[in-house]
Design a protein around this nucleic acid. Structure first.
Length: 225
DNA sequence: ACATTAACCCACA
DNA sequence: TGTGGGTTAATGT
């Protein structure tokens, strides 16, 4: 039987050579699962002993706050999911939900820890990823609290076009109220701001399809906020 | 908050 | 397999 871990990015991406026996171990203790958009992959408050690697798709990471659900960030494949939540605590501290059809691999935490112990490069790669992600979180936190809504919305659009989809034309995977939850705004404000962007010729929209026509202006809005 | 539209499910032909 | 009605979620103002 073919070991699908051999060419999986969870191994390749780290640019780390796992030993054959380590790949074997991974192969024997994982489960590949497909999720449709809207499906919940990690549920806050639920017991978990798996590390999850996202092979394909895009997910929103969200946490239930004092009064409402807060979207923390969006991630796309390939990446690990739930490292902080499975290492830090047996109970998930946040939720992850697919916003596009996705493919994920559940890896037993014990096996994952064993890999970290045996393979120094692998563990330093993981450490690096977590550091980058923490820095990113700090940056976003400062930026989001200090910027006006239009600036934040501009950031979201730029995020989609530059990091997530890498095109100027894409289909929003989130509803407007989700975007509101993301940038701390009501859905109506989002709607109005989007209309303004259209008026100003910055974007074109058909349903959820977005085309960015004036990226420079969008950047300006993002900067002065 | 309200009106309009789109998406979805189900019964029925 | 296709169509109308009824319901709900998303959107626009």
């Amino acid at each position: 039987m073919r070991n699908e871990c051999i060419d999986c990015e969870c191994v390749l991406r780290s640019s780390v050579e796992l030993k054959d026996c380590q790949i074997e171990m991974l192969g024997g203790h994982h489960a590949l699962v497909k999720f449709r958009k809207g499906d919940s992959i990690i549920k806050q408050g639920v017991f978990s002993t798996n590390v999850i690697f996202l092979r394909k798709g895009m997910e929103k990471v969200h946490i239930s706050g004092p009064s409402r659900e807060q979207i923390v960030r969006l991630v796309k494949a390939p990446t690990y999911l739930g490292l902080p939540t499975t290492f830090g605590d047996k109970i998930n501290q946040y939720s992850v939900t697919a916003v596009l059809d996705s493919e994920v691999c559940f890896i037993d935490l014990g096996v994952f820890k064993k890999l970290l112990g045996e393979n120094r490069e692998f563990s330093s790669y993981i450490l690096m990823e977590l550091c980058k992600s923490e820095l990113e979180a700090y940056r976003r936190c400062a930026s989001r609290t200090q910027k006006q809504m239009r600036g934040n919305l501009a950031d979201v659009l730029l995020e989609f076009s530059e990091n997530l989809f890498e095109t100027d034309q894409f289909t929003l995977p989130l509803s407007q109220s989700d975007i509101g939850n993301w940038v701390d705004a009501g859905r109506e404000s989002i709607n109005r701001a989007l209309s303004e962007f259209i008026q100003d010729g910055i974007i074109e929209m058909t349903g959820r399809k977005v085309k960015i026509t004036d990226k420079k202006l969008l950047r300006t809005i993002s900067q002065n906020g």
